[in-house]
Nucleic acid binder design. Structure first.
Length: 496
RNA sequence: GGGCUGGUAGCUCAAUGGUAGAGCAGUUGCCUUUUAAGCAAUUGGUUCCGGGUUCGAAUCCCGGCCGGCCCA
């Protein structure tokens, strides 16, 4: 053993561990059970009245994110849920011993402080600290203060670090919470009731997607994680819940990409005695109020910049309404598109640069053109109506033209944001549609849902809104991962 | 699943096949209204992992792991 201690000055974790040990030896608790605050940072700052320095006392707490040490005084900043507030710590105010302890604090430590509000000569409202407490010691250093954390993998795997050092991430993810909260208040104000329906299902219905399968041990049966909430919510219409909604986690066992997370959040709304036209009004009112009251564009307009194209999306203008058929005709230049023989459709689609799977049916070829060539160009809010009947087995057929549906797909920013239907409430028509769709796999038909329809479901409008995609749009995010707190990544890798 | 691309200090990034560096953070000093505070000095590396080529590999090749973008 040597008399000289090992030099740990290069190892920030070791340095902090040593400080921790010294505190414990001195009888100081580095991880306190509580700290009494009076205000969040932003609320505290608002209390200051110009020209009345040191008139208001506050107690605040947060993570130490900036330290500017000037010898016998320091300016530091702490971060809480509302943002940052600056603290001014003076040796001759707090006393020599406390000041020495303050100098031992590290960036990342969680600190509580009590003091009075004043305005510095550069105009920043600041807490003149009279007393302070280390609330929780941080044993690991924070990422770089200026560039923040930019390694995408670490941003997602250690989101807590991203939230501490990247203000845009914190703002964007808080915005998501406000969006969801606004949706709840908006719908409740119109007498919709929020319900919760099962995630574990015997049949995965209401959409076309591959489900996750899990196993219930006590019952010894497999369950599917739901791929939609539609069939449960419609049972509630039968039960007399006339206006229901669920903001629910949906699971689809499919690819992971910039636009897809295996679990995502869907709003589904059902309104008895309404129809798809009623849903148009509902979604337009909902989205414009969201932009106006939650996003609050700086210029006072209802315009949001589309991240992909840089184009403005104006929620305040007239929302375009266009028939699916007309979009297809315009995109292909074929007035008689729907009457073309399949071979001609394939040739034309391939000429447009699409690859067509040989087993596809004609409506699938047409829809490939819609989703690849048309949808991405629909940047401003657009209701696409009169979709072909093959596309939505749960919707009512149009009375005048039974080859199309009483539905719309609302497309904004080139993405499908909200499909809505006049809901099918004829049990026989619904059964026929299910049986045709299921083909060989009749056991996948949700018989209890059909039984419920036979008891009588009121006519209704229904709509699904992908909350994640909506948040991508509203926040100008580039990827679904940027609006999900903990997006799915392959296990392993990452932090150790 | 396929194509392209990336992984270097705690973080953000450099480094013609030839001694692995900088800024921030850390450490030691100075500084009682700072704003990426400033000044001086200074520590810190399994270059993602495993093979290979080479006198010599962060760099070239092969395989793997984990990301990103595009496509399916």
């Amino acid at each position: 053993m040597s008399d000289t201690p090992i030099d740990i000055s290069h190892d920030q974790h070791a340095v902090r561990r040593q400080k921790l040990a010294e505190m414990r030896t001195a009888g100081v608790d580095p991880f306190r059970a509580n700290f009494a605050t009076t205000h969040f940072s932003g609320d505290a700052i608002k209390l200051h009245v110009d020209g009345q320095d040191n008139a208001v006392t506050v107690s605040v707490a947060g993570r130490l994110v900036v330290i500017r040490d000037m010898g016998k005084s320091q300016f530091v900043k702490i971060l809480d849920q509302q943002g940052q507030v600056q603290l001014y710590v003076k040796k001759d105010v707090v006393g020599d011993a406390a000041y020495a302890a303050f100098k031992k604090l590290d960036l990342g430590d969680i600190l509580g402080a009590k003091g009075t509000l004043f305005k510095t000569k550069t105009g920043e409202v600041t807490v003149r600290v009279e007393s302070f407490t280390l609330v929780s010691k941080a044993l690991r250093p924070l990422p770089e203060k200026w560039h923040g954390l930019s390694d995408a993998e670490q941003v997602y795997r250690q989101r807590y670090l991203d939230l501490i050092v990247n203000a845009e991430s914190r703002a964007r993810l808080l915005m998501r919470s406000r969006v969801v909260s606004h949706i709840r208040r908006f719908l409740e104000a119109q007498s919709f009731v929020e319900v919760e329906t099962p995630v574990l299902e015997n049949t995965a219905g209401g959409a076309a997607a591959r489900p996750f399968v899990t196993h219930h041990n006590a019952l010894d049966v497999d369950f599917f994680l739901r791929i939609a909430t539609e069939l449960r919510l419609k049972r509630l219409l039968v039960g007399g819940f006339d206006r229901v909604f669920e903001i629910g986690r949906i699971f689809r066992n499919e690819g992971v990409s910039r636009r897809h997370n295996p679990e995502f959040t869907m709003l589904e709304v059902y309104q008895a005695y309404s129809d798809y036209r009623g849903m148009m009004t509902l979604i337009r009112d909902l989205l414009t109020s969201l932009v106006r009251e939650v996003i609050k564009p700086a210029d006072g307009s209802l315009k949001i910049k589309h991240a992909g194209s840089g184009q403005d999306i104006d929620f305040g203008g007239e929302w375009r309404e266009v028939r699916y058929k007309d979009l297809i005709i315009a995109a292909t230049g074929e007035a008689g598109w729907f009457a073309l023989p399949k071979a001609d459709k394939v040739a034309k689609a391939e000429a447009l640069g699409l690859s067509i799977h040989p087993t596809w049916e004609e409506f699938e070829i047409t829809n490939e053109i819609f989703s690849k060539k048309i949808e991405p160009t629909l940047i401003e809010p657009t209701f696409v109506t009169h979709l072909p009947k093959e596309l939505c087995p749960l919707a009512k057929l149009n009375a005048e033209d039974p080859t199309v549906l009483d539905v719309f797909e609302l497309t904004i920013g080139g993405m499908e944001v909200a499909p809505a239907y006049s809901e099918q409430n004829d049990p026989d028509a619904q059964r026929a549609m299910f049986e045709a769709q299921a083909g060989e796999e009749q056991q996948n038909i949700d018989q209890d849902f059909l039984l419920a329809l036979e008891h009588g479901m009121p006519p209704a409008g229904g709509m699904g809104v992908g909350i994640d995609r909506l948040c991508i749009l509203l926040t100008g995010a580039e990827s679904i991962r940027d609006v999900i707190l903990f997006p799915q990544l392959r296990p392993g890798g990452g932090a150790s």
